[in-house]
């Protein structure tokens, strides 16, 4: 087995193990740290697939910005005691795992009806570089790119409005 194959299996194992730990960790802070590990493993996958721009964006946006926001909120809310959260009954947990497993079964089973994908000989491998992705983004996807700025404006206004304290509100 070559290095890249070994890396693929290692990163896949790391991603799945960390994802399981996100779900089953008792402490929310541990969940966040394992989620960061998932994001780093996926970033490794992106580099293996030669999507270098998205690998960097994944580190900066997800592991950098979003997870810091999560950590900040968890520490801000001071959720150390697990007793605050009422535990779901074992029946509900088993039902959740079974239904998730059935969903996985359906998705994997649908693969059987597919023919194996034949790779084209003259495939372009440098599409993930900043230069090529930028050309596509600013030529073909210019309107969605501008609309994303309106979405950000709306999200910004919404977050400020939600975070504001109002006079009639119950505050602790």
């Amino acid at each position: 087995m070559s290095l890249s194959e070994n890396l693929f299996y290692f990163l896949s194992f790391l991603a799945i193990f960390s994802a399981l730990m996100v779900v089953f960790a008792k402490n929310p802070i541990h969940s966040v740290l394992y989620l960061i590990l998932v994001f780093f493993a996926l970033t490794g996958h992106y580099i293996l697939l030669n999507a270098q721009f998205l690998a960097i964006v994944n580190i900066i946006v997800y592991a950098g910005a979003i997870m810091v926001l999560f950590l900040f909120v968890i520490m801000f809310l001071n959720l150390k005691k697990e007793g605050d959260i009422s535990a779901k009954s074992v029946f509900v947990k088993v039902a959740g795992v079974v239904s998730g497993g059935l969903l996985l079964l359906v998705m994997i089973a649908s693969l059987k009806s597919l023919e194996p994908y034949q790779l084209k000989a003259d495939i372009k491998t440098d599409i993930g570089l900043v230069e090529n992705l930028g050309k596509v983004l600013y030529n073909d996807f210019l309107l969605p790119f501008e609309l994303a700025s309106i979405l950000f404006l709306a999200a910004m206004v919404g977050a400020v409005m939600l975070g504001k304290r109002e006079s009639g509100e119950r505050n602790f």
């Binding site: 964006v57 946006v61 997800y62 993930g128 090529n132 996807f141 790119f145 950000f152 999200a155 939600l162």
Partner: peptide
């Protein structure tokens, strides 16, 4: 996107990340 040699999929992921960032803030 990598297996088909088509950059549109990666641009789409870029937009998903932008929407996810806005979603997390709200």
């Amino acid at each position: 996107s990598a297996y088909r040699g088509d950059a549109s999929g990666q641009v789409f992921v870029f937009f998903i990340m932008a929407v996810a960032a806005a979603e997390v803030a709200v």
